[in-house]
Computed example of a mutant assay.
Amino acid sequence: MLRLLLVDEQRMFVEALTQYLSTESDLWVADSSYPSETDLLERARIAWPDIAVVDIAVLGTRVHEVLRRLEEVCPDVRVVVLTSTVDSDLAVRAARAGAAAWLPKERGISELVEVLRLVGRGHAWYPPEVLGEVLCALRREAGPAGTDHDPLAVLSVREREVLAVMAEGKRGRQIAAELFISVQTVRKHTRGILTKLNVHTQLEAAMLASSGGEMPALAETAVRALPR
């Protein structure tokens, strides 16, 4: 069961969403708030959610700083950002900060539930209307393929090991068993890999690693085995 923290300025929205999610057997709202930044961090520390669902209005232009502090308080949490407007600049900032998903509220609660389950399985999700700009921005920062820049230089030794096993098509528990670490540690390293490499999915991480020449057989395996 996924533990959720809901953070939104609109009390009615949070209450309606909490009531809807109570009917889903695999989702549990551990806490909710109508917040200040301090309240968000404190509630995350106590609730220790798997996923924090946060309205972009709470984060504003300080999205990177707030999400960085949230990760310090609760390292394993994955963030789904809700938005009432289409703002590709804020979407890029959220992606840079490591947000796993960016979902317009107009998409509806049923689609939110699907996204929560995807994120809970380690995937990421951004809508088509902002995805292009997000990917372009992150690709520019990652640097062009075929240069002398090693895209894996930012990764720790353990993160490289996790990425190598991930590229074989193995998932959380399998990676944990092979590397003799906990599933939570795998999730933490996976998030670190995606954030440091400035990508959204495990497939992109594997492809970027392959383009740097560090893992020669990575790309073909990744295309066959990893989620898209």
Rank of each mutant, 00 (worst) to 15 (best):
L5I: 01
D8W: 02
M12I: 13
V14A: 14
E15I: 08
E15W: 13
A16Y: 11
L17K: 06
T18E: 12
L21E: 06
L27M: 07
S33C: 13
P35K: 09
D39L: 11
L40H: 07
A44F: 04
P49N: 02
D50R: 01
V54L: 15
A57E: 15
V58Y: 10
G60L: 09
G60P: 08
R62I: 03
V63F: 03
R68Q: 09
R69P: 02
L70P: 10
V73L: 03
C74R: 08
D76E: 13
V77H: 06
L82N: 11
T83V: 11
V86P: 02
D87S: 07
S88N: 12
D89Q: 04
D89I: 07
L90M: 13
R96I: 09
A101N: 07
A101D: 07
E106P: 03
L112D: 07
V113F: 13
L118T: 12
G120N: 11
G122R: 00
A124Y: 01
E129V: 07
E129Y: 06
V130K: 00
L131K: 14
V134M: 01
V134L: 04
A137N: 06
R140F: 10
G146C: 10
S156T: 15
V157Q: 09
E159S: 04
V162M: 02
V162D: 00
A164V: 10
A167M: 05
A167L: 04
R171C: 08
R171F: 14
Q174F: 06
I175Y: 00
A176E: 11
A176N: 07
A177H: 15
E178N: 09
S182Y: 01
V183W: 06
Q184G: 15
Q184C: 05
V186P: 14
K188A: 14
T190L: 15
T190I: 11
I193E: 01
I193P: 05
L194W: 00
L197C: 03
Q202S: 08
L203Y: 03
L208V: 15
G213S: 06
E214F: 03
M215S: 04
A217C: 02
A219S: 09
E220T: 09
E220H: 08
R224G: 06
P227S: 09
